[in-house]
């Protein structure tokens, strides 16, 4: 049995390949999360005319690791009135759901762990699970601030998932497939042939709903420090808090990845000719994610928080009818003008 045969046929070989694939995604992702926190703080600092982290390591580059180390070394405190099992389970759920969604994201042509037929539904399903971590945390903490945060979060995520769902439908109407690689391939070409242009309003709706899904400003009501101390994770400390923190950033990266796949042509280079096509697709993909993440931070640095009723109003009275209308328009255009896929 050759080595190649071992990895493709034997069950142990399969297992090793699988674990290797997982590591190949998770490790860079965690590094990316670490530096996302760093970039986040640097960007806010720049917006507020400060310098940001600059003490630990050159330009403060080791700051995220120092923070992480601090969280690991601290004591995990479980409040005496808390529901212990659920209290510990909640951060894990948040963190795990943020990671497993990556299984279907195509980094480059063929670079995907599970190239399933219903990739986009899988992504949507997993991203709708994130809310459980928050709700369970809020309930299990047995604290009113945490509970209020959890309730807000549940209402908010459910509301904005609806419009994300409609956005996904418009995209898959255009692409004619639920497979993420196929969706990227349907956008082959330069930046003018990606979906952000024909579906521009949907791109905006998607981005704003993504902010709400990840509980980022201006939709960070579940943890609004002015009213709820720290919202759903008020009672969390040390690594349990760390997992929430990691999960939140991993989710942001995930939704940016979704945005890149759905609207920004995935791994394709924006200018489809020689010098640009030499750069590997995975780099373009990472760059697109980075651009979206920059906008995330930029928003956080410049936009004030919404009030609860404004948030609900935007979700149900603006986005929902608008995206519904756009689905109808897209479907009609595809049917009438034959723009659809085959």
């Amino acid at each position: 049995m050759t080595l190649a045969q071992f990895f493709t046929t034997h069950w142990l070989g399969h297992l090793i390949v699988m674990v290797a694939q997982c590591l190949a995604i998770v490790v860079p992702l965690l590094v990316a999360v670490a530096y996302m926190t760093y970039a986040d703080r640097k960007i806010w600092a720049a917006i507020q005319l400060r310098r940001g982290p600059n003490v630990v390591g050159p330009f403060g580059l080791l700051q995220p690791f120092a923070d992480g180390l601090k969280l690991v070394l601290k004591e995990t405190i479980v409040p005496s009135g808390a529901n212990k099992v659920l209290f510990v389970l909640a951060p894990m759920i948040t963190f795990i759901t943020a990671l497993i969604a990556w299984a279907v994201v195509p980094f480059d042509d063929g670079w995907v762990v599970a190239d399933i037929n219903v990739g986009i539904l899988y992504l949507f399903a997993i991203s709708s699970l994130g809310v459980y971590g928050i709700m369970i945390a809020g309930w299990a903490s047995n604290s009113k601030y945490a509970f209020l945060g959890a309730l807000r979060s549940a209402a908010q995520m459910v509301s904005y998932e609806v419009s994300i769902g409609f956005v996904l439908i418009t995209v898959l109407l255009c692409a004619g497939s639920l497979n993420l690689s196929a969706i990227v391939k349907a956008q082959e070409g330069g930046f003018w042939s990606w979906y952000w242009l024909p579906l521009f309003p949907m791109f905006i709706v998607f981005f704003i709903s993504a902010l709400a899904e990840t509980n980022r400003t201006p939709f960070d009501l579940p943890m609004s420090e002015a009213e709820l101390v720290a919202g759903f994770h008020t009672e969390y400390s040390a690594m349990t808090f760390g997992l929430f923190f990691l999960g939140e950033y991993a989710n942001m990266i995930l939704l940016s990845g979704m945005g890149a796949v759905l609207f920004l042509g995935g791994w394709y280079s924006p200018l489809p000719f020689a010098p640009f096509t030499w750069i590997p697709g995975v780099v373009w993909f990472a760059l697109k994610i980075a651009v979206l993440l920059f906008v995330f931070s930029w928003t956080k640095g410049t936009v004030p928080r919404y009030r609860y009723d404004q948030l609900m109003r935007l979700g149900w009275k603006v986005f929902l009818p608008f995206s519904l209308l756009w689905v109808a328009l897209t479907a009609a255009a595809i049917q009438l003008f034959g723009w659809g896929p085959g």
């Binding site: 539904l121 949507f124 399903a125 709708s128 699970l129 998932e161």
Partner: peptide, 8 residues
Amino acid sequence: LVIVYVGA
């Protein structure tokens, strides 16, 4: 099933 029942 996951999206509708679990997610909503």
